[in-house]
Design a protein around this nucleic acid. Sequence first.
DNA 1: TCGTATGGATTGACTAGACAATGGCCTTTG
DNA 2: CAAAGGCCATTGTCTAGTCAATCCATACGA
Lengths: 268, 268
Amino acid sequence: MAFEQGKLARMAPRMTESSKPVYQQVADWLRQMINAGELPPGAQLPTEKELSERFDAARATVRQGLTVLVNEGLIRPSRPRGYFVRGHELMYYRPQAEWRPHPTSPEMDRWMEEQTTLGREPSQKITVEIIKAPVRVATRLELGDDDLVVARRRVRFLDGEPFNLNDSFYPLELVQGSEIVNPADVARGTNQALTDLGYEQVRAIDEIESRMSLPDEVTRLELPIAAPVLVHRVTGFTADDRPVRHTLNVLIGSKHVVLFERQKNMGK
Amino acid sequence: MAFEQGKLARMAPRMTESSKPVYQQVADWLRQMINAGELPPGAQLPTEKELSERFDAARATVRQGLTVLVNEGLIRPSRPRGYFVRGHELMYYRPQAEWRPHPTSPEMDRWMEEQTTLGREPSQKITVEIIKAPVRVATRLELGDDDLVVARRRVRFLDGEPFNLNDSFYPLELVQGSEIVNPADVARGTNQALTDLGYEQVRAIDEIESRMSLPDEVTRLELPIAAPVLVHRVTGFTADDRPVRHTLNVLIGSKHVVLFERQKNMGK
DNA sequence: TCGTATGGATTGACTAGACAATGGCCTTTG
DNA sequence: CAAAGGCCATTGTCTAGTCAATCCATACGA
């Protein structure tokens, strides 16, 4: 019953901040090791057993501490091998790029170069549905609750890994019979297709929010657990201010940076 | 020991999806009640005891399920009163607004003015430091690791509640001796102050990412627990492409929507 | 040599308790 | 009537286990 080793081990990390709950001490200790680089991305953490001995705590307690770090996105459990430090390779995501094929000032390039020019393998899965407009879509497309929209859903992959969800909605009456309803790649882009139909978009509103991923997003993005996601919504308007497209982008928060560039005295 | 009531109660929610772990069933059941509006914002959830009886599970198990919802930001524990459904009043946050002309009183800066218009009680705490530029700041301001910057840190409150963190960094040599180094409100705005110093910003790059809040952000924002935050960085450039300001905004994810508007074929 | 069992280590899920901490409510007291 | 104190329901922290599921490596067999 008595556990001499345990008492000694307890001295080390636990005394320093004796007021805090033990599970937080565990989390703090590991977090600091990770931030200091002592546990680099990919490194394996001490096992639950080792931690419970080192902190002289029950396994459930160190587990509670590990859960904190998992929820923070710092570590990833890989059963039954152990916990590993997550690496975060950031992708830059530029909503403005859809209208500016070759934009970017030299400043931006410096930050992007490292990540963007890695020669990745993109692919996507497309499905198309005709559905009643969900509330948030109907609002933005200025439709009634019973109006139909074409929902063009894409899961985009990079090197085989799910990268984001990209669902676009179009009022059915505008695109019926066009290639947009066809669940295949539109080579020249759906925006060009809309233009060809007489609905060129000249203005867009971008909305960006952040929340935890929903259960079905966890599935589609093949996430190990719920993680923060960036939700990016675009509503495209024609010259006469008619909304003709709404796109819902769900990006894995830890993997993306959304980038905008703006200039003073541009509009009006 | 035997608990007849428990057996009966178990029938109801637990049988339906017997394959899933119980803690997930608890989370799913409550989540659905919340989404369906049966538990509206502000409503109190069943207590842990009630849930453990209803699902015929140990308290630790239903607690695990409740933790999921807390991490998703759906509910908020209020000890010792119980768990409550979180309401989400969204604020629109418009980075582009900082360059619109100042219409009204010069007494308030732009943010405070906007909020007052909306009938809120804004306030802020400002502190100013002179520090070595943190890596992410130094990179964007094109400074060396040892160069000094003025860090102007603000915590903004709305109706007494912390709302976001807003830290701006300026190369020391540009602003030394100016009012920017003074930890008081700059009535006409720090951007105007920079302009007056000969460094008008005509271009900006916005970066937006999402992650879980760090421990010190949890403290400063007085969050009950770690929650997803939106991190918004702005780098401001002069006409000759010199970066003169970097701002780091930390927004509580569940409370903000970042809004951009863009126009086709406007610039260049 | 090439699969094919078989263990072992590790995390996942869960139980049945204990005690501490806290905020609200009610009672008592001045 | 108002302030002070104590009760109590509820969550926070933690223990000490059990059994299940999974991946990896090792040993075994054809």
